[in-house]
Structures are given as structure tokens and as C-alpha cells.
Amino acid sequence: MLGARQQQANAVVTRDALKPEASSPLDMDILLVDDDSVNRKLPDPGPPTVNAYELMDRLCGDRQLLIELTEIFRRDYPRQVGLIRQAIDQSNAPGLEQASHALKGALSSLSAPAAREIAARLEDMGANCNLLEARAGLRDLETELVKTIAALDTLCREAGR
């Protein structure tokens, strides 16, 4: 089990997304080429925890709204995870699909692709009535959700500067 400090350090907020205005189109091209060359050499790091640029664009740069949504999510996601766990415990595939879908919606709105992907996997397991790997998926999801909250908190601070 990771400590909260370590989890926060592991949380990824896409670097170029925080201050998009600082990058010219040319800079973006260079970054993309640079990223591709890294990807060829290193294993795929997977999707970012939070895509900050996309999220701030969606919120029209409204930091207050970001803080509010982060708080809403912090309060609400344990309930949604509880519903997912309950559905798995009861082998309730439609329940798993429904609960995972709702959480996936929130994660999509918050531009949190890593956790969203796991929620989508759980939703598919529910839709296909295949709950064999659901418990492992739930563990992954819980880990990623802690990172998501940490990344959102970081973004709230960064966006205020």
C-alpha cells in the first residue's frame, strides 16, 4: 500500500497541458515528435491520470468550478466504488455495468483517462456478464482513483497560480 505522499508524487498531470498558451504550434509539434521517439524506446506509460489541458479547456479556465467539481467527486466517488463492490460481491452484472458506467461518466467529465479506462473495462465486464477479473479491476480502479484525486488537487493549486 502506497503512502499518500508517494501516491501524490505518482499522480501524473500532463506537463504541457498546464500552460498551453506557453507553447506555440511549432513547440507542440516538437513535443509530439519528442513523445513519439520516447515511446519507441520506452514501454507505453499508459494514459495520463488527468489531462489538464483538456479539462481546463472544458471548464473554460474556471478554477472555481474545477475546485467545486473536485470536491463533489471526492465526496461522491466512494459511494460509486461501494456500488461497484456491492455488484461484484453479489455477482450482479447489470449492477456492475450501471455503477461503472456512472463513474466512467464522472471520470470522462474530469478528463481522467487512466481511471476512466478501468471503469470502462469494468462496465464491459458487467455488460458481458464476465466478472472473473472484476475484483482485480476494482483494485486497479481504487488505486487509480486515489491518484486522480491527488492529480486534481495538484491541478487546483497549479491553476490558481
Binding site: R58, L59, D62, L65, E68, L69, I72, F73, D76, A102, L103, G105, A106, S108, S109, L110
Partner: peptide
């Protein structure tokens, strides 16, 4: 049914 999406859309 998702409170985050609802609030985002509302705003």
C-alpha cells in the same frame, strides 16, 4: 445520474 457531469453541464 452522475453528479459531476450534471454540475459541469449546469455551469
Amino acid at each position: 445520474d452522475d453528479v459531476v457531469s450534471r454540475r459541469l453541464m449546469e455551469r
